[in-house]
Every structure is written in structure tokens, then in C-alpha cells.
Design a protein around this nucleic acid. Structure first.
Lengths: 245, 245
DNA sequence: CGTATCATTGACGAACGTCAATCAGTGTGG
DNA sequence: CCACACTGATTGACGTTCGTCAATGATACG
């Protein structure tokens, strides 16, 4: 693990944090934010770093200021699955349990506001609005997990990949308020390898590659390069994702 | 929908409720429980009844007193998936959103403590401990959803079915505190059809049937009848479920 | 320029789905 | 009490989708 060492980072307090208006911390007004800032440490992790290991005890509760984290689970024989992809303003960790169910690994470089699980929970307990916001977050996470459950259980490979692309597009254009605005609204840049997409969708990297090629050939998207796709027919892509075709 | 009509049921207040010590309502002591009881209505639903319809607005927030409810999602072409199975003490509904993401359908007869979503949320807001308990519930639901995500994404049919049986066994013997104690600890009675198991595991009913037959032939379980299974080698079943074989 | 890594593409096979026949269990009515 | 029908489970034959294995291509990096 690589902790932030530079002194400058100590100055990164909540007031200057780029996401504090959108993350759960918004629940606390500026007044109580100091309380949070007091127990917060800001850390930088490089892409590829494993922040938390599956099964390990960890007292980390974090809010992502920037970057992307994947939560993965490994089966005894090496099969892997990504249960969640987290981006800025998302929370990592569980205030109730110190045992981590998943590996947390950085897909890109990550800036993380870190709290001690127990201390964060104490603040949650004393500030009901924060608890309420946290409940809302977890509820949204649950809804998203169930959406993917349906996809993994009942959709075919092309539908899964289409759904993933639409989801990415939504993430960039609706949820992630700090994503840099692209010149072209339909240009999709993503940091995931084919293997990561496959581990997320319950496929193999070859199948993901074939599906992307098929969508390209069919004119729904244009493959600019391995990690950049132009969406040519968003409506059609959406219909495929929703299994309406 | 069939509402409870008998006058006796009006007497079913929280104090006499069989699950109030284990459901989220425990968070409120006996004192505040009256507040909850004041806005609660107790309803009975028959097996097969659809309580909530996918996409509909619904202001129901309920706590299951007895019975089993399935939350399902339907794709435009008829493919179906069960995203969650709920039993006594579990909550149904979302305090934040009035639009239901799934159909809620009774697998068995169901006794449900019903609240108006908004009113329940008001009580949550004024009683932080209740909110905290609710957060804990949703966190557990999320963890469970992710466990099934990994299963649907990365496990084969036999492993899925084994996992389902182990999960059922755990539900009966660890979580569901009011399940009637069986004479034989390894006898598993369940209310689900092959199609329901299939819709939960992302398989077809034929595949589920074949997997159960295989586990029977291999001596891991004995199929007593369609809805009763004796687990003969729990450890082996667990290892299959965990993909350790 | 050579090497390493990742993506694409093809050939083939296995696992699971589809379709259909049979079997078992349950309820109903004569 | 039995015959019948109805529903759901099992089993078999066959087909499709996706996984596996392998070769080739593209891109980045020292």
C-alpha cells in the first residue's frame, strides 16, 4: 500500500474538497463538516493498488474524491467477479462490519478521504441526517446490484455489454458530476480492460471483445481504440440493453 | 389484493407481534413502538397474490410477520428474474422512492405489517436508532445481493443449486428465528417451485431439476419429494456451493 | 527495434437452453 | 373409491451460446 506522504495533502480539508457537495458528507452542513475533517485523512493510491483484501479485517471507511475502484471476489479456483465499480462521491467500506467481503482495487489512480470505520459510525449515530443520507446511498447501491443481478441472470452477452456501455454513459453524463465535459457527447472513454468488463458481466474477455466488434459492425457504436468508443445510435444501444430488440 | 377483514386482526398490535423483537422495529423500545403501531395496518395476503407491480407507484413499506415474498423483474420479452426472496422480519419497500423497481409476489400466504412509506420515513427521521437499524438491514441485503451476483456471474449450474440449498438451510437454521424446529436438522422444506428456483439462479427449470437429480445420484442429498430435500452430506454440499470441489 | 501486454479473431467443444415426451402428485366429480 | 384431468417435475434428444485454446494483430515501453 502506498500512503500519501506529501505535506501538501494535509491541507486538503473538506472545505476545499471537490466532491463534498455531492458525497454523503453534504448531509452535515459546513458547521459539522469540521468534525468530520478532524478524523479524516486524505490518501492517494496508484492504479493497480489493492486497498483492502478479501476476508481481512479492515477499519477503513472511505469516500472517493477521484478515481475508480473495483470491488472483486475471488473463488477458490481463481474465477473472479467484480461486484461493484465505484467512482467519485461513492463510499467504500461498511460501518457495521470490520471484515471485508471483497478485495478493493484501484482501477485508476485514486484520491480517497479515509475515516476510521468506528469513528465514522459514531458521527453517523450522532448526526441522523448523515445516517439518512448513508441509508439513501446504500439503497441506491442495492438497487444497482439488483439491476445487474437481472442482467447476469437473464440477459445474453450482447445485451450485457450494451447495458454496460449505457451504464457507463449514464455514469459520465448524469451521476458523476465532475467528469470532464467531452466535446462530443457520445464519445465514451473508460479505464477498464476487456478482462475487467468480462469479470463485471460474468463473461470471458474474448466474448466481450466479440460483442463490442459485433456492435461496431452493426453500426451501433464505433470502436475508436481499446478504451474509447463512440456511440452512434444511443437509442438502439439502449433498446438492446433493455432487451427490447 | 385481499385485505384482512376480520376484526380480530385489528387487535394484532406490535406488542403481540411474533417478530417485533427481531425486526427493525426492535430499534424502538416498547415506548415508541406504540407510535409505530398507531400508523400500522396488519394485512393478510394469499399465496400467489401480487402485492406491488413493477413500475407502479406504491407507498407501501412493510415488515413481514410471516410467509415468503419474491421480488421479481420482467424483461420486455417475458424473461423473468427473482432479485430477492424475503421472509419474516424482512422489509419490503423503499422509504425513499415511491416507484417500485420490482413486482412483489407472495410465494406463500403472508402476514404483513404495512406502513405508509412517507409516515414510516418520518418516524425513521425522528428516531435515529431505527434509521441505524434500517441501514444495517439494507447493508445486509446489499451484501447478499453481491453474493448472488458472484454466483450468477461465475458459478456453474450445480454450484448455484448447491449454494441455494445451503442458503435455504442457513435461513431456516440461523436467521429465521421462528421457523418451526424440525425433528431432523437436515430436512429441508421449501415453498419454491423449480421455476422459481430457476428464476432466482438464472437457469431454466429443467437445469435446476437435473442438478437436483445429480446431487441426489451423487449421494449429497436425498430428494424426498418435489419440495422436501434431506441433506446427507452438508459439508460436501457446502464445498460444492463454495466451488471448492 | 525488440519485447511485453492487451485486444482481436478463428476453430472447436462443453454447458446449458429448448422442445417434447413421460411421470408423479393433487384435486374433483361421478 | 376410482377415473380423470391438471399442474408441475423429470428425463431425453438436440441445438445454440458462450467458453477454451491458440494464433495473430495492435500498442506501449524500455
Amino acid at each position: 500500500m502506498s500512503f500519501a506522504a506529501s505535506i501538501e495533502e494535509l491541507d486538503l480539508r473538506c472545505a476545499t474538497c471537490p466532491v463534498h457537495h455531492h458525497a454523503v458528507c453534504q448531509a452535515l452542513g459546513g458547521l459539522y463538516l469540521d468534525e468530520l475533517a478532524g478524523i479524516m485523512t486524505h490518501r492517494h493510491f496508484e492504479a493497480g493498488t489493492e486497498i483492502v483484501h478479501q476476508g481481512e479485517t479492515s477499519n477503513l471507511f472511505g469516500i472517493i474524491a477521484s478515481g475508480v475502484i473495483k470491488l472483486t471476489r475471488l473463488l477458490p479456483d481463481g474465477r473472479q467477479h467484480i461486484v461493484c465499480l465505484l467512482a467519485e462521491t461513492d463510499c467504500i467500506g461498511d460501518v457495521f462490519s470490520s471484515q471485508s467481503h471483497d478485495n478493493a482495487m484501484c482501477v485508476t489512480d485514486v484520491e480517497l478521504c479515509c475515516f476510521h470505520r468506528k469513528k465514522f459510525d459514531d458521527i453517523v449515530k450522532s448526526h441522523p441526517t448523515l445516517g439518512h443520507h448513508l441509508l439513501q446511498r446504500v439503497t441506491v447501491d442495492l438497487e444497482e446490484a439488483r439491476q445487474w443481478l437481472t442482467a447476469l441472470g437473464r440477459k445474453n452477452a450482447v445485451e450485457k455489454v450494451a447495458m454496460f456501455l449505457v451504464w457507463l454513459w449514464n455514469e459520465e453524463h448524469e451521476h458523476c458530476l465532475h467528469a470532464p465535459k467531452r466535446g462530443n457527447d457520445l464519445l465514451l472513454h473508460f479505464p477498464f480492460s476487456r478482462e475487467e468488463i468480462a469479470d463485471f458481466l460474468g463473461l470471458t474477455l474474448e466474448t466481450v471483445s466479440r460483442c463490442i466488434s459485433k456492435l461496431d459492425i452493426d453500426g451501433v457504436i464505433t470502436l475508436i481504440n481499446a478504451k474509447c468508443i463512440e456511440i452512434r445510435e444511443l437509442d438502439r444501444l439502449r433498446r438492446i440493453a433493455r432487451s427490447e430488440i
